[in-house]
């Protein structure tokens, strides 16, 4: 194996900084880039090329123009609506909860309980969450039946749980804890001394919120809201388990276009829709990054 021309390498020798040979520092990040390449870049490229491939295999814009079909446009609007609604509800409720936690004892039971519960509940999406709601608030859920026995029919005007309003409620369940987690660091960055400074200069609570805390927190709040939007926009398993009829949101339309056994399978169109979702999420995340940058200027 070893040729005579090369110096023997002592295996016990420690690498010397600035020594000869190839730099090996990149080795540590290789797994990350391989991972990103395989599971983010490659699928995106496949989706991108598939979107522009027609049924005959040639270059085509047919898939992209099919996005205007009424049932697809409707699902896209539904997706955006439910994402905005659940993001706003989650952001407001989550911010209030985070504020209550931030102003409390930093080592108290409340804070520890809320943050650890949020950590768990923010991940409590998907099939389990859908079934939890079906079992409690579905047509035969025990909360529904209990209220019915006491004269309250929550579904008197139709079973809204399986509609957009129900979906918004279910999504809010994982949006609020996520908001607590991502907004709490921003609130912690607000120092009590700033309030004291406002008061010593003659300002009241309104002045403090209007001129100090508000402007400082606004970018963080908006940024977190955008994150929640992206979170809801891409959610699939929850809605797939909850609403199995009519492809109410875009991820379900995409899934149906892949799995139909009645001849409706159109992988090209599905990829075009996925591309549209990537574009929307990319725009949202770009705005999020810009807002985060603005936030971090003040709140370190």
């Amino acid at each position: 194996m070893t040729s005579a021309g090369e110096p023997a390498v002592d295996p016990a020798a420690r690498p010397v900084r600035g020594g000869r040979g190839l730099p090996l520092t990149w080795l540590g990040v290789t797994p990350f880039f391989v991972y990103v390449g395989l599971f983010l870049v490659l699928p995106s490229l496949i989706i991108g090329s598939g979107s522009f491939t027609g049924k005959d295999g040639g270059l085509s814009l047919e898939n992209l123009s099919d996005i205007q079909k009424p049932y697809i446009a409707r699902a896209l609007i539904n997706s955006i609506t439910v994402s905005i609604a659940s993001a706003l509800a989650g952001a407001i409720a989550g911010a209030l909860l985070a504020y209550a936690v931030a102003t409390g004892n930093p080592h108290g039971v409340l804070r520890r309980t809320v943050t650890s519960a949020s950590g768990v509940l923010a991940q409590f999406g998907g099939v389990t969450l859908a079934f939890a709601f079906i079992a409690t608030m579905g047509t035969i859920g025990f909360v529904t039946l209990f209220l019915k026995d006491h004269g309250i029919d929550i579904f008197a005007n139709g079973v809204w749980l399986y509609e957009l309003s129900g979906l918004t409620l279910v999504y809010t369940y994982f949006q609020i804890p996520l908001m607590v987690l991502v907004f709490l660091p921003a609130l912690d960055g607000i120092r009590p001394q700033w309030r004291e400074a406002t008061e010593s200069l003659g300002g009241n609570t309104w002045h403090y919120w209007r001129c100090v805390a508000g402007p400082l927190l606004a970018p963080a709040f908006l940024g977190c809201t955008l994150l929640l939007f992206a979170n809801a926009f891409s959610a699939y398993a929850t809605v797939a388990a909850l609403i199995t009829q009519g492809s109410i949101v875009l991820p379900l339309v995409i899934s149906n276009l892949f799995t139909s056994e009645t001849g409706r399978a159109q992988p090209g169109l599905a990829k075009a829709l996925a591309l549209a979702m990537i574009v929307i999420v990319a725009i949202v995340m770009l705005l999020y990054t810009l807002l985060q940058r603005r936030t971090s200027r003040w709140l370190r």
Binding site: K69, P70, Y71, R74, A75, Q245, G246, S247, I248, T262, G263, R264
Partner: peptide
Amino acid sequence: SAYLSSKWAQAIA
């Protein structure tokens, strides 16, 4: 199937 693909989602929305 072709008819349903464009009409079904709206009908039960």
